[in-house]
Amino acid sequence: MRHILTIAQTTMRESFRDRVFVGLLFFLLFLLGFSAYISTLSLSDVARVIQNSGMAGMALICLLVTILFGAFSLYREEERQELYVLLNRVSRSSYLLGRFAGTAMIIILFSLISGGALFLLTFFFGGIPAFGLAWAVLWNICEFTLLGGVAFLFYAMGISFTLNAIMVIGIFIIGHSMTEAVESFIALGRFGSPLHLQSVKIISYLLPNFDLFDFRLEIIHQQPLPRQRVFLALLYWLAYLAALLTAAGACFKSRDL
């Protein structure tokens, strides 16, 4: 446990010193400015537009964090041969968990900064205190820590960085298209092959389904989130993440470095 925390702290410190971190902060600032600007083009829905564009910006930033701080830093450490020094002192699974924890902390940090800034923008420009943004931050953290777990699994399997990044983006897109895919194949299934429908449903169960964390419209319309759905979504996140990290640990242990 001590090793995991130490590696997590080191990961965070390295990230703070990285120029990419500052670059992402500036990019976040730009996105927030864009949200505030674009809200002036709406008729009287300033708060809504700031929240919607802000949540989209938050997702984009966290996707970049997952790929640049999550995946890329692992490959960089391996390239610099620093990994072998570390693995002489700590177990492989501790190293992987520690790096994941550090990446997760960066994702949480960026989500909190984005959420806080959005709250202030919505309050000062839109005139409403958007407390629902706390849920947006939570679901953002769930989504991108899960995506980070996928990136770590691909790394543990020995996949190159470029392919890893492409596959992570692919999983991100597929994960957000599950509901639409199932709905469109329901119609197809009525007139076409039921096998297609079943195949799409099975894929939606097996691959990470980010639609389960999609409460954006409820947040915008200040509607209460259904408790049972929230609880099950969090349970899903925990179970899937545990599966990903366990599998990543097993792959990394048996990998020939």
């Binding site: 989209a56 991100f172 419209l217």
Partner: peptide, 12 residues
């Protein structure tokens, strides 16, 4: 599909 679950943003 294109909205990637940001339907509100695309609507805006």
């Amino acid at each position: 599909y294109l909205s990637l679950d940001h339907r509100g943003f695309l609507a805006d």
